[in-house]
């Protein structure tokens, strides 16, 4: 596989300046008012948890549930890392909202032609070699971007070398691994992180979908067999009746 990009958010370094929020809003042309939760006009927000600040954004999973759920393939995992959304394909079924283990995608409920919104790690900028707007804006280097393997190594180095960190990299195993990692000195569940399943969710449906050809073949064969038996029985019964008639 190609090398992909990933982001590391070091919660111990975040100073809560919300420069990432502002940069994100600016690049997407939203009004600059700060919001408390992810919304259709806030792809990332900084949450207050006592004296810790926690950024929320799409985790851009390695094997995203939303992309496997999307029946028209509007959501896609790019080889570069970001999970992108092609609004021209979307039909508005909202299965991605149901599927996302992190409850990230937002829907434009009040619009007449509503679309999904979510962070795509500034895919277009990254494709041109630029960092995501939020990372570029961060003055404290709390969010950094890089090749996924290197970023993961960096996260491990920090967690192992400094005792203040919780010995966990949130995103390394969650939902089978993501492209956004968090490290923290406070337990993740206290900061509102969801205890997501530790495996990729699409495998759950892949198993079921893998059964389709078997069901079609075995089911079809069984039903045809049953039909043949039914037919045969009817024929035999008819022949018997005929015979009786002829004899009498």
């Amino acid at each position: 596989m190609e090398r992909s990009k990933a982001m590391l958010v070091d919660i111990t370094k975040c100073i809560g300046c919300r420069a990432c929020e502002q940069a994100c809003k600016e690049i997407h042309g939203f009004s600059k008012e700060s919001e408390t939760h992810l919304s259709t006009t806030a792809y990332t927000v900084v949450e207050d948890h006592g004296d810790r600040y926690v950024r929320r954004l799409c985790m851009n999973c390695q094997d995203p549930a939303c992309a496997s759920a999307c029946l028209v393939g509007a959501l896609k995992k790019t080889s570069l890392g970001p999970v992108t959304y092609d609004k021209s394909k979307c039909m508005g079924c909202r299965y991605c909202l149901v599927a996302c283990p992190f409850n990230v995608p937002r829907y434009q409920w009040s619009k007449l032609a509503p679309y999904i919104t979510k962070c795509d790690m500034c895919y277009e900028r990254q494709a041109k070699g630029q960092p995501p707007a939020c990372v570029e804006a961060c003055p404290a280097e709390a969010s950094i971007i890089g090749w996924r393997d290197e970023i993961l190594e960096e996260a491990q180095r920090r967690v192992l070398n400094d005792n203040k960190y919780v010995k966990q990299i949130y995103g390394s195993h969650e939902a089978g691994g993501t492209s956004v990692f968090f490290i923290s000195d406070v337990a993740f569940e206290k900061l509102g992180f969801i205890a997501a399943p530790k495996h990729a969710l699409p495998t759950l449906t892949a198993n079921a979908l893998g059964d389709v050809p078997t069901v079609v073949m075995v089911g079809g064969a069984m039903l045809s067999g049953l039909y043949w038996i039914t037919q045969r029985r009817a024929l035999v019964a008819m022949a018997d009746a005929q015979e009786k008639k002829e004899r009498s």
Binding site: S68, C70, G73, C90, M91, G92, C93, T205
Partner: peptide, 26 residues
């Protein structure tokens, strides 16, 4: 009523994602 963009109800006919359960259902 349920689809956000009902005029695109035909999309699954030409846009395929065979990993999607909803695709199979549709």
């Amino acid at each position: 009523y349920e689809l956000g963009l009902p005029w695109r109800i035909w999309h699954p006919i030409v846009m395929w994602n065979r990993h999607s359960v909803l695709f199979e259902v549709s």
